[in-house]
Design a protein around this nucleic acid. Structure first.
Lengths: 148, 148
DNA sequence: TGACGACTTAGAACGATTCTAAAGCTAGAA
DNA sequence: TTCTAGCTTTAGAATCGTTCTAAGTCGTCA
């Protein structure tokens, strides 16, 4: 598990000016949540600092992403989710119904390679694996069963 | 290479009513293009059928997706691209600069597995692998070089 | 104290997509 | 052939997440 202070500590040590607004956004991110949307982060931040504006949440998130401290995930609904867990390599499991992401560490992922003939002259910078499925809560809602 | 008539043939044999508008959308999809956005498909369709409306393009694409004949890809810009090549299993290579997708067939992808302990009770329905990189055209634009 | 730069804010603007309500087509019945 | 019911198309409005704008606030350093 990630040290809950990690993100804020990293930001401080990078000399990032830590206003009250930025702090509540960072705190919301590093809590033990699934990866949240900007909207969810906004409402969580608001519980702690009522005056914070949506624009500040968006500004802060955009800045954290461009600093490389937070990663953006796009669910199938097109809405961005924010993943603060950049320090540890991992992939994702997405519920196709409720669009929730979970971090996962698949086996065999280091064996995946793109043959030269399929690189089309690209400079490769990364690879993401997304498993898709239906989470337990949505299985109940949908009335589906896991036959395995 | 996919038979260029495949998509339209499949649709016809499924009893899908093939209007002029739907035909030009399907033809645009199955041409030898990279995976296009709705906007790009609209302008291509328009070259062949000037009166076609944007709404029809969106309606048709949505229907093709829900029929399972076309797959949606979300680039990092949040804009949907449409992949008509559902018949053959494949993964994707995305240019992080121009957001173009190419189909690829990595090696070792069948060795990737999610351990039981990491499934969190999900019913798994699929796995997508997306390689990211910079395409040759964008390398020129950006002035970066491939050192390998 | 003043001034500058960084940060925040409300609200407008934006862009992709979906919705709405009306009009147009088409296949098959009469 | 004509009629009709249902599917399809249309323009434009609406939606929603996100970004932009321009003004206001704050903190820091001289």
């Amino acid at each position: 598990m990630v040290n809950p202070e990690q993100l804020i500590d990293r930001l401080r040590s990078r000399g990032w000016r830590l206003s009250a607004q930025r702090r509540v956004v960072a705190e919301a991110l590093q809590g033990d949540h699934v990866h949240m949307s900007a909207e969810e982060i906004y409402s969580l931040a608001r519980e702690r600092l009522e005056e914070i504006s949506q624009a500040t949440v968006y500004n802060t998130l955009r800045e954290l992403v461009s600093m490389g401290e937070v990663r953006v995930l796009l669910a199938d609904d097109g809405v961005k989710r924010y993943d603060p867990n950049v320090a540890v390599a991992h992939h994702h499991l997405l519920c196709v119904h409720c669009q929730t992401f979970k971090d996962v560490h698949p086996s065999g992922d280091d064996g995946v390679e793109l043959p030269d003939a399929e690189r089309f002259g690209f400079i490769l910078t990364g690879m993401d694996i997304v498993f898709k499925g239906i989470c337990p809560e949505c299985q109940l809602v949908l009335g589906v069963q896991d036959h395995q």
